[in-house]
Every structure is written in structure tokens, then in C-alpha cells.
Computed example of a mutant assay.
Amino acid sequence: MKDEHPTNTDELFTHAMAARQRAYVPYSGFRVGAVIRLENGQLITGCNVENASYGLTNCAERTAIFSMIAQGFRDVQEIAVVAEGDRPVAPCGACRQVMAEFCDAKTRVTLYNTAGQSLVTSVADLLPFAFSKEALQSE
């Protein structure tokens, strides 16, 4: 993917790692951190929050996006996600769908592992043919 937005990847990585440390993961132990950079430069973080009723668990990416919405913002410039693994870890399907709802298809998404390896992609590349509000419009 072409880098359309200048970014300070060290800053995003640092904030995503800090968010990851706040994760509530007593069941899986799998900590994930996410950070959103808004068009105005502000950063909003999220971490995964588990629940004994596993279906009620919320991923870091959705936590960050829902926090952004709750704070009255909609202007995502880019997203970064970090988790432990041999390679950068990609978002789950639910997170990809939420990203498609609140981000432009070209929004930059940087995936990291805790060693700092990264993969740069976009919302469209993560979820091609996304289900969107246009599909709900009837003739």
C-alpha cells in the first residue's frame, strides 16, 4: 500500500503498546492494544477487555473506535494495532467490519507485533467487499 499519510510510527507503536498493558485478559492472557490518530492529530487508544461470558469480550480495535465515537469524533486518519506473535497480528472479522463502518476504505492500518515488526495495509485490504450502509438502502 502506498503511504498516503505521513506518520510517526514510533509514536503509534508506543501508544499502542501502552494501551496493550491496560488490557483486561484474565482468561486468554492475549493482550492487544490499539491507537487511532484523528485528522487533528489527537490519539485515542483502546485495549481488549475480556469477560467470563466470552461472547461479551471486546477487542482493542473496537474499544478504540467506540471510545472515539463516544468522544464525538469521526475523522480517523490511521489506526495501529499491536499484539504478541511471531508476526504482526491482524484484526478479527468483527473489528474489520467496525473499521469499515467508521473509516474510509483507504484508511492506513499498521499492524505490529511486540518486537516492533510491522505490516502496513488499509481498511479495504483488510475487508474487501465490506458490507456497508449502501447495502441497506432500498430502491
Rank of each mutant, 00 (worst) to 15 (best):
I36R: 04
A34K: 03
R20A: 14
E139Q: 13
L136Q: 14
T14K: 15
A23N: 06
C95P: 04
G29F: 01
G29N: 05
F73A: 13
H5I: 10
D125A: 15
P26M: 07
V109F: 08
C47S: 15
L119R: 09
G46V: 02
A60E: 03
R37W: 00
D125V: 12
S28N: 02
Q21K: 12
A19D: 03
T121R: 07
E84A: 15
P91L: 02
Y24Q: 11
T110V: 14
P6C: 01
V81S: 01
C92F: 03
N40W: 00
R37C: 07
G33P: 05
T45D: 06
L126V: 05
A70T: 00
F30C: 11
C47L: 04
F13R: 00
Y27P: 02
H5S: 13
Q21F: 01
R20I: 06
A19E: 06
I79M: 14
Y24N: 12
T107F: 02
E78F: 00
A16L: 02
D104V: 06
Y24T: 11
M17R: 07
Y24M: 08
R74T: 11
N51W: 01
F30I: 05
D3C: 02
L127E: 00
I79F: 07
M68W: 14
L43Q: 08
A19R: 05
S138H: 13
R31C: 07
G46Y: 09
R31E: 11
S28W: 00
Y24D: 15
Y112W: 10
P6N: 09
R31V: 00
V89K: 08
E50I: 06
C59A: 12
P26N: 08
P6I: 03
E101K: 14
Q77V: 06
K2H: 10
T45E: 13
I79D: 07
